[in-house]
């Protein structure tokens, strides 16, 4: 069934979008990831303008951030103060990200930049995850040992505007969480991803937050950062397609239920390996597009 998207201004097969939503929902159910890395490239591949894909995806991430946060919040795994600092940086980052996006679009480099950024981010994350899961299947105990007992980098220790964050037991410059949130905001605005896979390690290794708090706090601030990004995409660019968004979200709600069932069955290490392979596959597909000689060297856009 073809459905006409009022903002993207093209007609797309509704089933395909729905299945994409289900798949992403399934992944978020199993792995707790937002799945933006899968949705955005696929929507662009379907012929949806990159700006609409990213704008709508930012809205989609509000939903997955929300569903992830509630559970963490109930268990007390959210540091609201650090999250608040991060989302200040996140909102500013989204705004700058949208400006960068517009500039790249004007220069005709948006597809290239988005693909390249995805390839760099996804391939490094994928390789890291894959090596970690292979490593941990040989030595089962050593994985988590280096997460605790963080020593704060001397450069970070010298930064001004120090604040106390009692929940995480940290005394650190407010600039650090703001800066991490800022990077997350830029990624959300340009790539349509929540950036959890980048933010969580940064919060653990740079901020020195406990792992369990990092995941919950990252999700908590993603809600607000992506909501701000959605509002900016909607008002500045008119690139949030609510029809596309609703199909993706409905698919996501259904898919996540299957994902949660599957998550109880599969071993965490196997799940991580599958996710790593998936991340590498998406990265490989995008890398191929950058490297292979295009079918037509010329492309046309309405300015």
């Amino acid at each position: 069934m073809q459905i006409y998207l009022p903002i993207a201004e093209i007609s797309v097969p509704a089933e395909t979008i729905f299945i994409l939503g289900c798949t992403v929902g399934f992944l978020s159910g199993v792995f707790g990831v937002g799945g933006g890395f899968l949705t955005t490239p696929f929507l662009i591949f379907l012929g949806i303008p990159p700006a609409v894909a990213v704008g709508t995806q930012a809205n989609q991430l509000v939903a997955s951030g929300m569903s992830g946060t509630i559970g963490h919040f109930k268990r007390g795994n959210v540091d609201v103060k650090i999250g608040g600092m991060m989302l200040v940086g996140g909102v500013v980052g989204s705004f700058i990200g949208i400006l960068i996006f517009r500039l790249l679009e004007y220069l005709g480099q948006i597809d290239f930049a988005v693909s390249l950024l995805y390839v760099v981010l996804l391939s490094s994350i994928g390789v890291l995850m894959l090596s970690e899961s292979i490593f941990s299947s040989f030595k089962k105990k050593t994985v988590k040992s280096h997460f605790n007992a963080q020593r704060v980098n001397p450069f970070i220790a010298r930064l001004p505007y120090k604040m106390r964050f009692p929940r995480s037991k940290l005394y650190i410059s407010a600039l650090v969480p703001i800066g991490i949130g800022f990077v997350g905001g830029i990624l959300a605005a340009i790539l349509g991803i929540g950036g959890g896979f980048l933010l969580v390690p940064a919060m653990i290794y740079i901020l020195g937050m406990p792992t369990i708090l990092a995941a919950g706090t990252s999700l908590f601030q993603i809600i607000f950062t992506t909501a701000a990004a959605t509002l900016m995409h909607a008002t500045m660019n008119n690139t949030v397609d609510i029809v596309l968004g609703i199909i993706l979200i409905v698919g996501g709600v259904i898919g996540s239920q299957f994902g949660l069932v599957f998550a109880r069955v599969i071993k965490p290490n196997h799940a991580r390996t599958i996710l790593a392979i998936l991340v590498l596959a998406v990265s490989g597909r995008l890398a191929y597009k950058l490297l292979a000689t295009p079918y037509d060297l010329y492309s046309t856009v309405v300015m």
Binding site: N59, V62, G65, M66, S67, I223, V240, G245, I249, Q257
Partner: peptide, 16 residues
Amino acid sequence: GLICIFIAVFAGWLIN
């Protein structure tokens, strides 16, 4: 934009 966000927040809550 606000309506879009509201729908997403509601969906996230529903999943939970």
